[in-house]
Design a protein around this nucleic acid. Structure first.
Length: 560
RNA sequence: UGCCCGAUAGUAUAAUGGUAGUACGACAGAUUUUGGUUCUGUUUGUCUAGGUUCGAAUCCUGGUCGGGCAACCA
């Protein structure tokens, strides 16, 4: 008995098309990135959509690189894009490049010239812009608009043969300079760029514009449903016009609202700036919303897919709360990540009535959500490190952790009671002295005492160390792209906090790059590729939900 | 002020002429050897004015608000 899930608008369109027998019920989509940057979480939505739709309706999805602008594109990006799509869990049917179609597109252009539907314009970029008109005023026809077919054919061939400099001439479609839709005012089809292309090398010096490449590429591949984002809606009449005039396979374009996340930016231009300005350490800096960064941070493909599924697909602009993404990774890691203990901000704790030469190997369950995860042993001794924030000299009412005279349980171990503290000259606590209840050992507690709080710890003599990188949101404001001034002025200065010497339980010393753990009470962490044999580096993927922190900050606000 | 797109709780998303529901969040409580998890409960919504209809979030009209469009970018 499966739950009835309603169809999104694209699924409705596809089901109607299948019912009507359009294209024989065939569904073929494509994912068309431009190789000029790394994929981000917004692309994940598009990938899940295009591949997901095809899968649902027994269709296929092509990967096609929209590489019509040699200036900005690079194979580095091609490789990262392919890796990211596969990491997300999808495999394309065919791999194509718009540049593979350059010859065919050239022939299409020639065909339009022959039909009297395209012409070579000698105007300068400035003149062309001036003749475009404005949204409220019609444009003016170019003086070159009425050239003969023969002349256009010759000039276009000359363009191809490199007889002109960059910007000297363009090929334009002859449509309507008074069209209310600006994109129909004789749009450019080809421009001259004497530039090296990452795939075609120096073979071409004219390159098709997006509008003259995308729809035709879809058509060549017999794409049935060409799905793109909302900003291309006004391009659709042009998309249809070229296909109609060329009399080629009628692909159709459908548009959905792109995904935006709050407290971040998802504009390739802005992301690139963060990288080139050194604000982050690279495209895969774990604070970035790129897929490579999310991967490095510890996000799983399944959590991102679940997120994309959940946010749905619609035509209204939206900004999703990052909290939703965090929910999905917590949800998965809670089920799958082994628990371990790590102390990030240590303070020494000595159990005065525990023999100094004694070491116990305590049993610790790896994952309370998964019995099959088994157990490990954790060494216990009289000198431990605990989290500095787990002790307060003058605790507020509902503070269930350590305080003078107050008792807590050490996870997997004993109940202890704080007897005294030792401070340095500046008043900082250096050591907390406690006594333990020998009969309160975990698993065989005969003390009859129950305590409200349980804290994590590591044995000082047995602890290993690691660098731990704590991340917070990259921006201080919800929609940095829409704020006044430079978006970079809204960077959160505390987005990265490095703990260079965290104490971790010895079992963790053998962790490998990519391994994920829950640091008990602290969050989910993942071993970073910067890890070397001598030095472990962890990234905090996401914190645990922390109702105490919320409670405490409420108290702060009340005081203020 | 030309053309196009859109408007349902804080956020996102359903209801396709017939009881406005779900998820995340927030709030309250229970459980808990993680202030985690889990469970229970609560709160908050159809942009507006008309019209059609027995009945409108849904259809029609006007308005309001938001977004997009005038790159030899995609």
């Amino acid at each position: 008995m499966s739950e009835e899930r309603s169809l999104n608008f694209l699924e409705q369109i596809i089901e109607e098309d299948i019912a009507k027998g359009i294209h024989g019920g065939r569904v073929h989509t494509r994912f068309p990135p431009e190789p000029n940057g790394y994929l981000h979480i917004g692309h994940a939505k598009s990938i899940c959509l295009n591949f997901g739709l095809a899968k649902k309706y027994n269709g296929l999805t092509n990967l096609r690189f929209d590489d019509t602008n040699p200036i900005t594109e690079d194979t580095e990006y091609v490789d990262s894009i392919k890796a990211d799509i596969r990491w997300l869990g999808f495999e394309w049917a065919e791999e194509h490049y718009a540049s593979d179609y350059f010859e065919q597109l050239y022939e299409f252009a020639v065909a339009l010239i022959k039909k009297g539907l395209a012409y070579v314009d000698d105007s300068t970029p400035e003149e062309i812009a001036a003749m475009k008109g404005t949204p409220t005023e019609p444009g003016k026809e170019s003086p070159y608009r009425s050239r003969s077919v023969e002349e256009n054919l010759q000039l276009f061939e000359n363009m191809r043969n490199g007889m002109y400099k960059d910007g000297e001439r363009v090929l334009r479609a002859k449509i309507d300079m008074a069209a209310p839709n600006m994109h129909l005012r004789d749009p450019l089809m080809y421009r001259i760029k004497h530039a090296h292309h990452h795939r075609t090398g120096d073979k071409w010096c004219i390159y098709p514009m997006y509008d003259f490449a995308h729809g035709q590429s879809d058509s060549i591949e017999h794409i049935t449903h060409s799905i793109c984002t909302l900003e291309f809606v006004p391009h659709r009449p042009l998309y249809d016009w070229f296909i109609d005039k060329l009399e080629i396979f009628p692909s159709h374009q459908y548009e959905f609202a792109r995904l935006s996340l709050n407290y971040t930016v998802t504009s390739k231009r802005k992301l690139k700036q963060l990288v080139s300005d050194g604000i982050v350490r690279g495209w895969d800096d774990p604070r970035m919303p790129t897929l490579s960064a999310l991967r490095r941070r510890g996000y799983t493909p399944a959590s991102i897919r679940a997120f994309c599924e959940r946010v749905g697909v619609q035509k209204r602009d939206n900004i999703i709360e990052v909290g939703l993404l965090e929910y999905f990774i917590r949800e998965e890691l809670n089920r799958t990540a082994n628990r371990v203990m790590a102390v990030l901000d240590p303070v020494r704790l000595v159990i005065t009535n525990y023999p100094a030469d004694r070491v116990e190997a305590l049993q610790a369950e790896n994952n309370p959500e998964d019995a099959s995860a088994g157990h490990r042993t954790v060494p216990f001794s009289n000198t431990l490190y605990i989290e500095r924030e787990d002790f307060m000299e003058n605790p507020p009412k509902k503070f269930f952790r350590l305080a003078p005279g107050q008792m807590v349980r050490l996870k997997y171990a004993y109940i202890i009671k704080c007897d005294s503290v030792e401070k340095d000259a500046d008043g900082n606590i250096t050591t907390i002295y406690c006594s333990y209840l020998p009969e309160s050992r975990s698993g065989g507690d005969a003390s009859g005492i129950s305590v409200k709080g349980t804290i994590h710890w590591v044995s000082a003599a047995h602890a290993a160390t690691a660098e731990v990188r704590l991340y917070d949101r990259l921006f201080k404001v919800e929609d940095p792209g829409n704020e006044e001034g430079d978006f970079k002025s809204y960077i959160n200065p505390d987005s990265l906090q490095v703990v260079s010497n965290a104490y971790i339980e010895p079992a963790l010393a053998s962790a490998k790059t990519g391994d994920r753990f829950q640091f008990l009470r602290k969050g989910y962490f993942c071993v970073d590729p910067d890890t070397t044999t001598g030095k472990l580096v962890f990234n905090r993927t996401v914190t645990l939900k922390d109702t105490w922190a919320k409670e405490a900050s409420k108290g702060e606000k009340a005081k203020a």
